[in-house]
Amino acid sequence: MKRRHALRALNGIFHRELLRTLRQRGRLVSAMVRPLVWLAIFAAGFRSVLGLSTTPPYQTYVLYEVYVVPGLAAMMLLFHAMASSLAMVYDREMGSMRLLLTAPLPRWYLLGARLLASVVVGLPLVYLFLVVARYWDVRPPMLGYLAVLPALVLSGLMLGAFGLLVSSLSTQMENFAGVMNFVIFPMFFASTALYPLWRLAEAGPVLATVAMLNPFSHAVELIRFALYLRFTPISFLVVLACLLVFFLAAVVGYDPGRGLWSRRGDQ
């Protein structure tokens, strides 16, 4: 693989992803409105009933809005990843996926480039949300906005790779939409996005264990800690490991010799 060719392909894939995203204004608006509704309505309601004791990385009691914002940022990445994977299934049904898969580059590279492009295109909205959240007095240190970037990218890649894996196993868009419902909601609700782990443990040890094992929880904590200039090595390693496992499994799923598509013949 020639480096110049690879970079041009990456640029082309990124450009296409950007154009498609910018032209789907409804998706852009809903991606922004969704976390704001959670922040403005859900968090406001919970603020009065959910007391939060000092939990790392916070060094004092914090408002529920402060707690929930990193989880909502991760939620944006999760929804973006799933929407991007749905677009891959759509591309496959519409035929345009063939163009990508018949490009003279290794398939792992093409899938990785598509994954990276999707994450990069989704990041500005997350930042916009973090800036808007300042209106609700969610004001992490300014340097935190920079420190959170690698955490957002890594988490976005991990969630995107998971979506890629799911898309490699889906035969039709209808199936994929169903899978999304079974994936997004359990992943989001059984995590530390909305409640800290000790709260979940109070509700039941099983739920706390599920949340602790849920890779999305670790993405949330990685983002939360980075936003407040802290680093959580366990979450980092879990997110990184999940990224590698999901991506490798997705590459196998799209492999011309081993993937399900070669056995079903409907690629």
Binding site: R98, L99, L110
Partner: peptide
């Protein structure tokens, strides 16, 4: 390759579709 099923991206212009292909081929 010209596949039986159309593989153009309907949301993009002709030029954008062709630029995408050109990029994939380096």
């Amino acid at each position: 390759v010209v596949f039986q099923q159309q593989t153009l991206d309907l949301d993009l212009t002709t030029a954008e579709n062709l630029r995408y292909h050109a990029a994939l081929h380096g």
